[in-house]
Design a protein around this nucleic acid. Structure first.
Lengths: 203, 203
DNA sequence: GTCTATATTGTGATAGAC
DNA sequence: GTCTATCACAATATAGAC
């Protein structure tokens, strides 16, 4: 083996990530993954017994990225609006690096919601503390009364949708002009932050 | 044929809709569609020559629902904030009736973005007029300066995401409690309308 | 560990009787 | 129009040589 080569397992994982995220579990072909990794099918099965096991390796990794680290940011000691800005920025940064993750995760979870149950049972995020933070800000008078659940969903929705709905947005709103769509994406961080803060700040 | 029976074509279309929307094109099986329609595979191919043609019939129908009739509402003579409310309400009503459409459409378009091109070429919606309406409201001073493209995307995002991301939201935020998730959905119309209007109205 | 060849099953599609 | 039987090929998975 050449020294500069990635080891085979890594090559397989990279190839599988590309193909699974593009085609989904049902649309992906073991042959295509093998081709992408420049090996043959048999070797895939040598490293990962079957398609399911290979998929699981990809899915878990993608899922972690999909869930924003909302807790860390929200529990810090900054001003609430700065927390919002930071959360939006770091999440959009991740999405820019992994633009196809949202639709992949959403589709695969829809196909098999059981996965969520498994992940939750391993002890996932606890939103209660975040609800508390938001309710405290309401009492302090920083923001108007809003239901914490809705605020959180709104934040995630505004960050994710431009990526999950890319072809539709690019097609209908930007007439398939990729340049203006990319410009739109770059503006998103500040647009989303401002939109959220305007929506909840006390006048 | 019994008088009360739906005709076969309708039965097939209903069955195909159920299966395709749940599993996607790649995950759907002609056998499963036949079972759902309580007929056999051969009859499927008699009515629709192949899987692609059957899928296209389902997809076009779903896609029309997926794109909100944003034009009609926005060009009416109501107050701008009433237009927003109306748009949000009618779109969320549609999503409540067809909760699985968003993830289906988003995934299938991602799998084959070419579909968008085809639909656009048949002359789709024209967002220019909506941009104008929004810019007029900015000049009138009803709302603060916002980029129309972002406002439109924000509106759609806030409506769609609770449906596209249902398993994740229900799992993480509502601990898989279906009752509280349903309550959350019922609150959405007013929450989303208020959120948007707060975000853009001039103080 | 990596390959070629092959087994095995799944799946879309058709032929032909009724 | 509807059915049973079957074809043809695609796709996952394994056997076994090197």
């Amino acid at each position: 083996m050449k020294v500069l080569d990635k080891n085979t397992e890594k090559k397989i994982l990279d190839a599988a990530k590309t193909v699974f995220i593009k085609k989904g579990f049902d649309g992906a072909r073991m042959q295509e993954i093998a081709d992408e990794a420049i090996i043959n099918k048999a070797l895939l099965h040598y490293y990962f017994r079957n398609k399911d096991k290979l998929f699981d390796a990809i899915f878990s990794d993608a899922f972690v990225k999909f869930i924003p680290k909302i807790g860390e940011t929200m529990l810090s000691q900054k001003h609430f609006f700065d927390k919002i800005k930071l959360l939006v920025e770091s999440y959009i940064d991740m999405l820019t690096r992994n633009p196809h993750i949202p639709i992949f995760i959403l589709h695969e979870i829809n196909r098999n919601p059981q996965r969520i149950i498994q992940i939750l049972s391993k002890g996932g995020a606890n939103p209660e503390m975040i609800f508390k933070v938001i309710n405290t800000e309401i009492k302090k008078g920083t923001i108007i009364p809003v239901k914490p659940q809705h605020l959180i969903v709104n934040i995630i929705a505004l960050c994710i949708f431009p990526y999950a709905g890319r072809p539709v947005i690019q097609g209908f709103i930007f007439k398939n002009n990729n340049k203006t769509y990319q410009k739109f994406l770059k503006e998103r961080k500040t647009e989303v932050s401002n939109f959220i803060i305007n929506a909840i700040k006390k006048k």
